[in-house]
């Protein structure tokens, strides 16, 4: 695991525009290894944009990003995955024609080597690699309790299960930093509790650093170590859940509206 001499992720004065719209303005955030950081804020505050900058889907107009002391501001998304940054999406982005197993095996992509030729011939090394990683994927399937649907096409699954499979796919990558964009949105209470348990287990047992966006304040207060609050693209508060809860700016900008 990464030795936490300094923050694992440093987001330094990030600014992002879309034409006239400013999604992020000088956002600064440091995330320590092994912690669960929640990012909260009203709709359109820039939370998803922030995750997109971290995973490389958006390129910031100004500011810099460092992951484990390496600058990644201009690193392409697939390289960031190789460095150990994984994520899920607010609107599920599974490979919907593929089965649960295939989706999770795709999560293993960066850990596998089989190329075009050896894959097509399916000889010794390719077969062995498939078996090896299949075993790892089965552990994740057990962990997430989705054994019964492993051969189902994900497009046919209920919404809550799809969210779970998407978490599984991200876990299969074995990221050291995992970004979760509203992992519990649209779930019922029981599904939310399951998801919260999985997230806590991932943090505890795997030592994964987590950044999660969540609207349910109860969940946020329960599971996060730190909370950052965005409003209109600016970070207006940061601290422990208790600190943030009492911050008058936050109460006015966000909690007050509920």
């Amino acid at each position: 695991m990464y030795a936490p001499v300094s923050p694992q992720l440093v987001i330094d004065s990030l600014t992002l525009h879309f034409g006239g719209v400013t999604a992020l303005t000088g956002v600064h955030l440091e995330v320590n290894a092994g912690e669960i950081t929640a990012v909260i804020g009203p709709n359109g505050a820039g939370k998803t944009s922030l995750l997109n900058c971290i995973s490389g889907l958006y390129r910031p107009n100004a500011g810099r990003l460092f992951f484990e002391e390496q600058e990644i501001t201009n690193t392409v998304p697939h390289r960031r995955a190789e460095l150990g940054i994984g994520r899920t999406f607010q609107n599920i982005e599974l490979f919907k024609h593929l089965t649960v197993l295939e989706n999770l095996m795709l999560g293993r992509h960066i850990h596998m080597k089989t190329g075009l030729l050896s894959g097509g011939l399916f000889w010794g090394p390719a077969r062995r690699e498939e078996e090896l990683h299949r075993r790892r994927v089965e552990e994740i399937i057990d962990f997430l309790e989705i054994e019964s649907i492993r051969h189902k096409a994900v497009g046919t699954l209920a919404y809550g299960l799809q969210k779970r499979v998407e978490l599984g796919r991200a876990l299969a990558l074995e990221p050291r930093l995992l970004l979760l964009d509203e992992p519990m949105a649209g779930m019922n209470l029981e599904e939310k509790e399951d998801m919260a348990r999985f997230i806590l287990d991932v943090a505890e047992e795997w030592g994964t650093t987590l950044i999660l966006i969540e609207h349910d304040m109860g969940v946020v207060m329960d599971i996060s170590d730190r909370v950052a609050v965005l409003d209109f693209g600016r970070k207006i508060a940061e601290g422990t859940p208790e600190e943030v809860q009492q911050n008058p700016l936050v109460i006015r900008a966000y909690l007050g509206k509920q």
Binding site: S55, G56, L57, V76, P77, H78, R80, A81, E82, G86, R87, F89, E93, L94, F95, K96, H97, L98, L106, G107, H109, I110, R169, L173
Partner: peptide, 13 residues
């Protein structure tokens, strides 16, 4: 994966 969701494919490496 590229066919189904190319953005998701890129963040899977």
């Amino acid at each position: 994966a590229v066919r189904d969701r190319d953005l998701a494919a890129s963040v899977m490496g």
